[in-house]
Design a protein around this nucleic acid. Structure first.
Length: 667
DNA sequence: ATAGGGTTAG
């Protein structure tokens, strides 16, 4: 009978249409979605059992196609107040679509509109987690409290999903203790309960408590941390204890299913704590295990590549980024610019920067600091001016970059002007980094007195880097009087920081203050654990090699020392005399020289000379400032071997070609 | 047919 066909719809057709609807996930599919929607209206009578699920699918599809008004329209077509449960689901789905699009205010508005609609449409245990999350995202504690008390009245607070979103809401609204109360009151906790609590403490800065909860969790007999656990603890691991990082790594290792986010979080923990070798190593392991990186992975691992100057790894990551079609992506392009600059390839950094379709202050800061680190202060200043010309507002870090560029290139007046404009014109309160740049700039330009006065008039307490910059300047300009003041301040301020040890003890030794020399030594012996050992790092193939002073543990040790002997012998004939002054006073003259000759930079250079073919540039990354002796030796070695040597130290990059360094020996 | 925790650049 022809007339009855429309009342007995062919469910097969409807199913096919619903599959089509579900496949519409992008704005480009909107036309077919509308067509399918129209057909469905003809096919499915509102009372048909498939009509409710169809509505849900339509709302989801319209939301996925960024057609939120259409999704709303589907919801509004639900007018009869008697289909309570089905209506609630539709509301839930649309609220979910809104939260997914970060439209939290809209989600909360829609939630508020549920009640007057009709007695049968109640928010349920699916709705509350969504709206509590929106409260958290919009930091609406008032509404969050209201909703949580409504939840309690309904007895829904026993639901884990609800409890977890309540924990998160309280923490993100600045009430971590209330979050903890909810967590404490939970009868049955699962891994997400713990994650919610860890993250709750971590994201409000209660790092120790976050770590304590993490430890308590992993110590439970049958706990199984997941990717969310690693990601939750991440913000609390900014300045983490080594043993805590080991604990996190252990949890990571024991995870049977390593989701991408856990790799990314583990990488970030290494990267944020200066474990650059481990970060790059973990990335290499990802590649080996066939884990496909995403843009977060590469954004996280590029800075460690820069730190280590692992140019090949960095270039390979750039290839991955291009191959996966991740560009254009401002974040990644900024990270790439910085990585290349940090690896000593100003050309590649500039290429990335030039190829960008949009640039923000971070992009400009990256390229300015790139030129600055290479000693090209003029270019850095020109780029800074160009940025200003484009109407971009420099921030605190942009000023650090340009001030550092001025100090690296000795642009005294320009630097002073920028410092003044930062405070007067841009109303940026200078921080310790800015003061350090200025002291460095003044001091190394020879204005020691002015640098000292500058410190004295600083509105904030000068830290060890500020005094350290002054001490450096005093060493360069042999200013004993101010140097001793700086040394005293440093020793008082950070007796445990042995990075300044050599500078300090030299200053005291030159002044004949042997008792103070002894104090420095003792302080170091007592608290010597904090000593940052000088290390030089090089990349060979996909391996990272680390060298320490006098290191003999490398398998090629024998050859390296032979090569070094040969090199030092040859450059000695060219006027190289070990600068004994840079080392400790009470070591025998001959020992001093031997000490200098086995500095990690020299070992690293010899190692690469042995293992790379002629003409290959030598890249070495060092975690301290390189000493004058190594700098001179590197220049001469570059001449006799005809190799480019790119030596990055903790402060800047030395690009050495045929005996000349880009720093112009001003460093 | 729907819900919780969680990552990236100077």
């Amino acid at each position: 009978m022809p007339g009855s066909r429309s009342h007995l719809p062919a469910t097969g057709d409807a199913d096919a249409l619903l599959r089509l609807v579900a496949a519409c996930r992008a704005p480009a599919h909107l036309a077919s979605l509308r067509a399918a929607h129209a057909r469905l209206l003809l096919l499915l009578h509102p009372s048909h059992p498939s009509a409710a699920p169809a509505r849900v699918k339509l709302i989801q599809a319209y939301a996925a196609c960024s057609a939120l008004p259409a999704a709303h329209a589907v919801l509004n077509s639900l007018c009869s107040p008697d289909r309570g449960a089905a209506a609630t689901i539709c509301f839930n789905v649309l609220i979910r679509a809104l939260t997914a699009a970060s439209l939290h205010r809209d989600a909360l508005r829609l939630f508020a509109s549920m009640r007057p609609r009709g007695s049968a449409c109640f928010p349920d245990h699916y709705t509350y987690p969504l709206v509590l999350k929106s409260c958290a995202a919009s930091k609406d504690l008032q509404l969050g409290l209201q909703i949580h008390s409504a939840v309690a009245k309904l007895g829904l607070d026993a639901n884990r999903y609800v409890a977890h979103s309540a924990i998160s809401m309280y923490a993100r609204c600045g009430c971590p203790e209330d979050a903890h109360r909810v967590f404490d009151g939970m009868q049955n906790r699962d891994v997400v309960s713990w994650n919610a609590m860890i993250s709750g403490f971590a994201r409000v800065g209660l790092f120790e408590r976050a770590v304590d909860v993490f430890k308590e969790f992993v110590a439970l007999p049958y706990s199984i941390p997941d990717a969310g656990t690693i990601a939750s603890i991440l913000p609390a691991m900014g300045n983490a204890k080594a043993e805590d990082i080991v604990l996190v790594r252990k949890a990571f290792n024991e995870m049977q299913l390593k989701e991408l986010i856990s790799w990314n979080a583990m990488l970030a923990i290494y990267a944020n704590n200066g474990y650059h070798v481990k970060a790059v190593g973990l990335f290499l392991k990802m590649e080996k295990d066939g884990v496909e990186p995403d843009s977060m992975t590469v954004a996280t691992v590029l800075p460690p590549c820069g730190e280590l100057s692992t140019f090949s790894a960095g270039k390979r990551i750039h290839e991955i980024i291009k191959k996966k079609g991740m560009l254009p992506n401002l974040l990644l392009e900024n990270a790439l610019t910085d990585m290349y600059a940090s690896c000593g390839s100003l050309k590649d950094a500039r290429n990335v920067f030039d190829s960008m379709s949009a640039r923000d202050v971070i992009s400009w800061t990256s390229i300015i600091s790139a030129y600055g680190k290479h000693g090209h202060g003029r270019e850095a200043v020109d780029l800074f001016e160009k940025m200003l010309g484009l109407g971009l507002e420099p921030d605190s870090i942009a000023f650090v970059a340009v001030l550092a560029a001025c100090s690296h290139a000795g642009l005294l007046d320009v630097g002073k002007r920028y410092f003044d404009s930062m405070t007067c014109r841009y109303h940026i309160t200078p921080k310790a980094e800015h003061y350090t740049c200025m002291v460095d700039l003044l001091g190394r330009a020879g204005c020691i007195g002015e640098a000292y006065d500058f410190i004295m008039t600083m509105p904030i307490e000068p830290n060890e880097r500020v005094w350290g910059a002054l001490l450096q300047a005093c060493r360069i300009h042999s200013n004993m009087d101010v140097g001793l003041v700086a040394a005293d301040s440093l020793f008082r301020l950070v007796p445990e920081q042995t990075g300044y040890y050599v500078l300090l003890s030299n200053m005291y030794a030159r002044a004949g203050r042997w008792a103070d020399v002894t104090s420095v030594r003792n302080a170091m012996a007592n608290k010597g654990i904090k000593k940052l050992p000088g290390a030089s790092i090089v990349e060979l193939g996909d391996q990272v090699h680390t060298f320490h002073i006098g290191d003999r543990c490398h398998p090629q040790s024998e050859m390296i020392y032979q090569k070094l002997d040969e090199l030092l012998g040859r450059i000695r004939g060219m006027g190289y005399n070990p600068e004994v002054d840079a080392t400790l006073h009470d070591v025998e003259e001959e020992d001093k020289e031997r000490h200098l000759s086995v500095h990690s930079e020299k070992l690293a250079i010899a190692f690469l000379l042995i293992n790379t073919s002629p003409g290959t540039p030598i890249r070495v990354a060092m975690n301290l400032r390189t000493c004058g002796d190594c700098h001179l030796a590197a220049k001469l070695i570059s001449t006799i071997t005809s190799r480019e040597i790119i030596l990055k130290d903790s402060n800047r990059i030395h690009h050495i070609v045929q005996g000349g360094c880009s720093c112009g020996d001003y460093w």
